[in-house]
């Protein structure tokens, strides 16, 4: 389950927990009981569940901390102790509210793999903020906006084809431009967004004159220094407005009449000799652009 803060994800999960039997629930905020961490891990558990909880704690890398005072553990360790207890449950449904929220980058992969393993033969509903977590963990994703599931389906479908402007913004489609359809042909349309004419895919319900949002991810934008001919229907010239380093990538904002965001590698940045003020061309394939009805 994916959505912005306050979208109602936790409320929905809490409601599910309250209204169903045989579900194990990991609340969003961790809590450690007084005493050693082992008490939080195993309280109320017996036999096989208790053994499984210890095993999950080991797999999640917190077995060594179980003898120490639970509240002295780091946020990430506390979350993993809480999670180990839930994963050890024999319940057929796991409800996990932001299981990766306070986990270090170093331990994220471990936790994701553990959840995936625990969910192999049961259903896990996971609330996540991070697109990468959804991509790594989920088979299906539901995008929540203002308490309503706006879109639900296989991860690839939702990520690559957000059904609305809200969904696009939530899942982090960087380019959301607003305009009106000026032409249609089959599954495609042309949208006038300020000075730009953008070729995009459209749904059957959209027609000339409709107000739409045009969506495309930053990773679909190709940046070049020359005006070379390509298969991309959308091809505009402009100047680089800003260059921002985002981890191992570089985000460029190019002013082509409207701001268009692209991400490139540092190697590409060096090769293109791109910096603020550099004139560049940006191209986007029409099939990577989607027009959705304006909310």
């Amino acid at each position: 389950m994916f959505g912005p803060n306050g979208a109602g994800k936790s409320t929905l999960l809490r409601h599910e927990f309250a209204s169903r039997n045989d579900v194990a629930y990991l609340p969003q905020h961790t809590w450690m009981l007084r005493g050693p961490a082992r008490r939080t891990l195993t309280i109320g558990l017996r036999g096989a569940e208790k053994v499984r909880a210890e095993e999950w704690a080991k797999r999640l890398g917190v077995a060594d901390t179980l003898g120490t005072r639970g509240r002295s553990l780091s946020g990430g360790e506390q979350k993993r102790v809480n999670l180990a207890r839930v994963l050890a449950s024999g319940s057929k449904v796991l409800l996990l509210d932001e299981p990766l929220a306070p986990i270090d980058k170093r331990d994220r992969s471990l936790v994701i793999h553990s959840i995936a393993e625990a969910a192999e033969d049961r259903v896990a509903v996971v609330v996540a903020h991070d697109r990468d977590v959804v991509a790594m963990l989920a088979t299906e994703v539901a995008v929540l906006v203002d308490g309503v599931i706006e879109q639900q389906g296989p991860v690839a479908d939702v990520m690559h084809a957000p059904a609305s402007e809200d969904v696009a913004r939530v899942i982090g489609v960087e380019n959301v431009l607003v305009g009106a359809i000026s032409d249609v042909s089959d599954a495609m349309c042309t949208v006038a967004c300020g000075p730009l004419l953008i070729s995009a895919r459209r749904s059957d319900s959209l027609d000339i004159g409709d107000r739409v949002a045009v969506l495309f991810g930053a990773e679909t934008v190709l940046v070049s220094r020359d005006d070379a001919v390509s298969s991309a229907q959308n091809h505009w010239g402009g100047s680089v407005e800003s260059v921002v380093r985002l981890g191992s990538l570089v985000q460029l904002t190019v002013d082509v009449g409207v701001p268009v965001i692209a991400v490139i590698t540092p190697a590409a940045q060096d090769a293109l000799e791109v910096e603020q003020g550099t004139d560049v061309f940006v191209s986007v394939k029409a099939t990577a652009v989607r027009a959705v009805e304006r909310a």
């Binding site: 927990f17 194990a24 629930y25 609340p27 905020h29 961790t30 809590w31 109320g44 809480n82 449950s89």
Partner: peptide
Amino acid sequence: PAVEFVASLQ
């Protein structure tokens, strides 16, 4: 969080 945790213990 304490109350929710206790509820989640089942």
